[in-house]
Write a protein that binds this DNA or RNA. Sequence first.
DNA 1: CATTTTGTGTGACATATGTCATTTTACAGG
DNA 2: CCTGTAAAATGACATATGTCACACAAAATG
Lengths: 323, 323
Amino acid sequence: MNSQYDADDHKLEIAYWYYKLNMTQAEIAKRLNFTRQRVNQIIGNLIDDGIVEIKINGLRENNVEMESAFEKYFKLGRVFIFDVDDAENQLDLFGQKAANAFTQLLSDNSIIGVSWGITLGAAVMKMQQRNLSNCKIVQMVGGLNSDTELAKPDEIARTLAKKLSCDYHLLYGPAVVDDPQAREVLMQDKVFAETFDLINRCDLAILGVGELSKSSTIYQQGFLSKERLEKLVAQGYVGDMAMQPFKKDGTWETENHVIGVSLETLRHIPRVAAVACGVNKAKAVLGAINTGCLDVLIIDKAIAQSISQELSLDIDELNKKSN
Amino acid sequence: MNSQYDADDHKLEIAYWYYKLNMTQAEIAKRLNFTRQRVNQIIGNLIDDGIVEIKINGLRENNVEMESAFEKYFKLGRVFIFDVDDAENQLDLFGQKAANAFTQLLSDNSIIGVSWGITLGAAVMKMQQRNLSNCKIVQMVGGLNSDTELAKPDEIARTLAKKLSCDYHLLYGPAVVDDPQAREVLMQDKVFAETFDLINRCDLAILGVGELSKSSTIYQQGFLSKERLEKLVAQGYVGDMAMQPFKKDGTWETENHVIGVSLETLRHIPRVAAVACGVNKAKAVLGAINTGCLDVLIIDKAIAQSISQELSLDIDELNKKSN
DNA sequence: CATTTTGTGTGACATATGTCATTTTACAGG
DNA sequence: CCTGTAAAATGACATATGTCACACAAAATG
C-alpha cells in the first residue's frame, strides 16, 4: 500500500515518536497505516541507518567496553576489569572490588571451592557479611605454611565460610609433596574421599592466578624449588592456578607433586572465577584463560591492557553487534 | 541484598549492556543478582539520570516536533505541518503532501464526507489511485458555481470517489440560499434525507478552512455578499469550514443560509480533518481548532509558526514527557 | 524502643516486541 | 497478458517489558 519511499520519509517521525514520545510500535503503525511488523522492522534499523544515536555518558571512565570485548573474544561468562591506580593500597583496593565481584557470583545452596593466594585472600577478607547458610565452602588445595596468614587455603576457606555464615570443609593434607609416590598414596586414602567428592561437585570455584618467576609468591614462599621453577620456565610454563602450572597456550602436563584440585577437574566445575592483579601477571593470566578452565575473570586494568595490546585487540570492533 | 550504592555503580554497565549489547533485562538481572523488575526500573530512569542520551539526526529539518507539540497542546489526534517554500507551486506542493496525509487517514469500509475549497480540491486531485471500493463518498455542502472546477464540492466528491474506486453520493441542492425560509423548507425535504443520514454517519470528513476577508475564496467567488461578510467580520468571525463561519474562540451561532453539514454535526463525526495553506489563514485555523470539531489538522509551516508565535508556544517544553 | 519510611524482593499479569511461515500485492520483463 | 520476484500484509507465537499488589528488611525518625 505504501512504497519504500514512504517508509524512508517516515523514519524520522517514527524515531521521534518511538524514542522521544514513547509511543508503542502498534500506535505508530496505526497512525501510518503500516503493519506493526513493518514499524518494528524500521525501528530495528534506525540505528544502523544513522538516524538514531544512543550515547552513554561516562563510558570511558569505566571499563565496561573492555570487559564485554574480553567476554566475547575469550568466550568467558563474565570479565571484571578494575582500576587500581593507587599503587600504595593496590591489594586493598583490588581486593575490595574483587569482593564486590564475588558477591555477584554467589548464590545460596552452592558448594564453593577455594584455592589460595594473597590476592584471593585479600578479596575474601573484604567481602561483606551475608547469610548464605546453605552454602558449603571446600578447600581445594592442601595446606601450606605461608607467611601471609590470609594467603593460606585453609584460612581463606574458613574466612569465607564466616562471611557467608556457612559450613566449610578443609583438605587436611599438604599442598605439595616432594615425592610423587607419596602423593599417589595420599590421594588414594579414604580421608580425602569426601573432600574430593565435594570438590568434584563444586558449583563455583574461586582461585588466584600465579605467575612463575623468582618474584612470584609460589617461589618466594618456597612452595616451589629453584630447580623445579627453572625447569618449568624452561618448558614454557607461565603461571599456575591452585598450584597447577600451565603454559602460555593453556596446555599442561599432569602435575604429580600437588595435592589438590586438578585443572582437569576445574574444567568441569560450572563456574570458575580467577582473580589476578598486577601487570607482571599478564602472561600468566593469558595462559590461564587459554586452559579453558575459566568462566569468570577478575583482573586489574594493567593486565587487561597488556593482554589487549599483545593480541592487538580492537575493543570497539569486538563490540559491534555481530553477536 | 544490594545497597543503593551498588545500583548507582551499576547504572553505566546496565546502560551499556542494554542499549549497546542488546542484552535483555532478565539477562542483566541475572548477572548482577538483581531482580528483573529492579533492572527495569533502573533502565527506565537512565535517560532522566542523564546517563543515556538518544539523539535523532535531522529532526530539525522536519516538523515532527512541532506537529507533536500541536497535537498535545490542542488535543488533536494528528497534526501535519508541511514546508511549502516554493511560492510558485505552493498549491501543487501542499496539495501533494496533504494528499499523502489523507492516505494515512483512509481505510476501507468507511463513509467519507467532503466539503469544498481550492486547497481541498488540490489535495484530492493529487491522491494516488487506490482500491477502497467499500468506501462511500458523500458531499457535505450543496453545489456552487465556482470558477475553479476542482473547488466545487460535487467535483471533489466525484474525483475522490474515482481515486478510491468507490461510490459517491451528491447533495443535490445549492450551497447557499438567500432566504432562510427557503433553506428551512429545502432541508426538510425528503430528497435530502438519505444524504444527511450519510453525513451523520460519516467516519471521516475532510474539509478546508477558509478565512473571512475580501481576498477569501468564499467572497471572491461571490458565495458571500459584501454585506454579510462585513457583518460577520464585525461580529468577530474569522473563518469558515464547510461554509459555516466561526469566531476566533471557536464559537458560532447557527447559520441559516447554508445547506450542508453543520458544525454541530461535524463535532460528532469521529475523524474530521481540515486542510489550510497560507499564512493569511492562520487566524481562521486557530478559530477552527477552537471549535472542537477537528481531529486532524493539515497545515503549512507558515500557519504553524504564526499560531505558535501568537500563543507563545514552547515546542520543546510541550514535548517533555509529562504525558 | 517502637514506628514510619524507603528500597527491594516476589509473584502475577497485561502489553509490547521480535520473529516466522504463509499469503497478497505491486511491479518489471518477457 | 502472463509470470517471476520483491515488498508488504497477515496470522500466530514465544519472549520481553512494564506494572501491580504485597511482603520484608534495613534505615531513619520520633
